[in-house]
């Protein structure tokens, strides 16, 4: 049973199978490789067309790398990435450039993702020029439309990035990503550099645009609250691996993996009555280095329920009754629902 069938039943837009990215660690003058950072370590993931996948994890979890792999902005070490019916990992440079019309990206910090030397109108026009070959009046009109689409006046297009607030500029970055009517937009922490009041603006915009245009998102964030507002499905990553993936409602209301449980409980709720009555699962220790991840289940060094088998054997995939895919030894792969024991 694949995730696509579990999910909305639509055809998969993106299907990643066994995707791995190992960054070599090079030392010395001869740039000898002395090890590898396993940024992404064998991830299977499906994004049905028009749906939105939230990807959460802490720093070093490999979530951003996974997003870039999906667009092949970096080369995967192994695995396949099917976008509709073409394998992105095997495309030649030309076809890859062409397919990027259908898959775009919104980056974390709009001030660094927009060229400070180009006017914002020029940046929004770039995909229209290179992908659609638009010129002159037609180009102008399309740029103006895009500004209106993200609720900004087209009169702003002659201005430079440093004249905008973070929220405004991020909306312009969204306009650039939507210029070619893509089927998939990878949003890499699109609101984490913004303030609360502007954050809400961009989140609402992204949610509205998905409803209007039927785009699929891979929405990467470390803030589970943010992801919640735009995602149909949620994937949780830890040290390069997907540890849990399922329907957003299911993941939030009944997280299966001990890491997901800890992550959710770690976020302080902005309500003193609720927050002070919660019991927080405080994980011991630090995130291990992705250059030297623990054996077996990567989470075993910090897991409150660690067993011997966790240290030795990679946890198998288990699918629970609510359709969540979990990789944890506590949950047998039979599909039977087994609840994680309460915190000791």
């Amino acid at each position: 049973m694949t995730a696509a069938q579990v999910g909305t039943g639509q055809l998969p837009l993106v299907q990643m199978t066994g995707v791995t990215k190992h960054f070599p660690i090079q030392r010395g003058v001869m740039r000898r490789t002395v090890g590898h950072v396993r940024a992404v370590d064998g991830v299977d993931m499906t994004i049905p067309s028009g749906s939105s996948m939230g990807l959460v994890g802490e720093s070093g979890s490999g979530k951003s790398t996974l997003g870039r792999l999906m667009l092949r902005l970096i080369e995967p070490t192994s695995g396949t990435i099917m976008f509709e019916d073409s394998d992105v990992t095997r495309l030649k440079a030309r076809s890859l450039r062409r397919i990027r019309r259908h898959m775009q990206m919104v980056f974390q910090d709009p001030y660094s993702s927009m060229d400070p030397r180009s006017s914002v109108g020029d940046s929004v026009a770039e995909p229209l020029r290179t992908q659609l070959g638009l010129r002159g009046r037609e180009l102008d009109e399309r740029v103006a439309d895009l500004f209106r689409l993200v609720r900004l006046s087209p009169t702003y297009r002659g201005r430079y990035p440093n004249e905008f607030s973070g929220g405004q500029l991020q909306r312009i970055a969204v306009a650039r990503a939507l210029a070619t009517n893509p089927k998939l937009v990878v949003c890499d922490e699109p609101v984490s550099s913004l303030d609360v009041s502007t954050k809400a603006e961009v989140i609402n915009l992204l949610a509205d645009l998905q409803d209007e245009l039927g785009i699929a998102y891979l929405f990467i964030a470390h803030d589970l609250g943010v992801v919640r507002h735009v995602s149909d499905r949620i994937g949780v990553m830890y040290l390069g691996r997907l540890v849990e993936e399922g329907d957003a409602e299911a993941v939030y209301s009944s997280p299966k993996h001990p890491y997901t449980q800890a992550l959710l409980s770690a976020i302080p709720v902005p309500d003193p009555v609720v927050q002070r009555s919660r019991t927080r699962i405080v994980l011991e220790g630090d995130l291990p280095s992705p250059a030297n991840p623990p054996s077996g289940c990567h989470f075993h060094t910090r897991c409150p329920y660690v067993m011997d088998v966790c240290r030795a054997v990679d946890p198998p995939l288990a699918v629970t009754s609510d359709g969540t895919r979990v990789f944890c030894h506590l949950i047998p792969p039979t599909g039977a629902e087994v609840l994680v024991p309460p915190a000791p």
Binding site: D195, G225, R228, H229
Partner: peptide, 24 residues
């Protein structure tokens, strides 16, 4: 009030977030 409404929260995802027009 607006600030409290603008925080993306774990519960109640269906609500739209309150936005504060303009910028600081």
């Amino acid at each position: 009030k607006a600030l409290l409404g603008a925080i993306p929260q774990l519960a109640g995802s269906e609500d739209r977030l309150t936005t504060i027009p303009g910028v600081v």
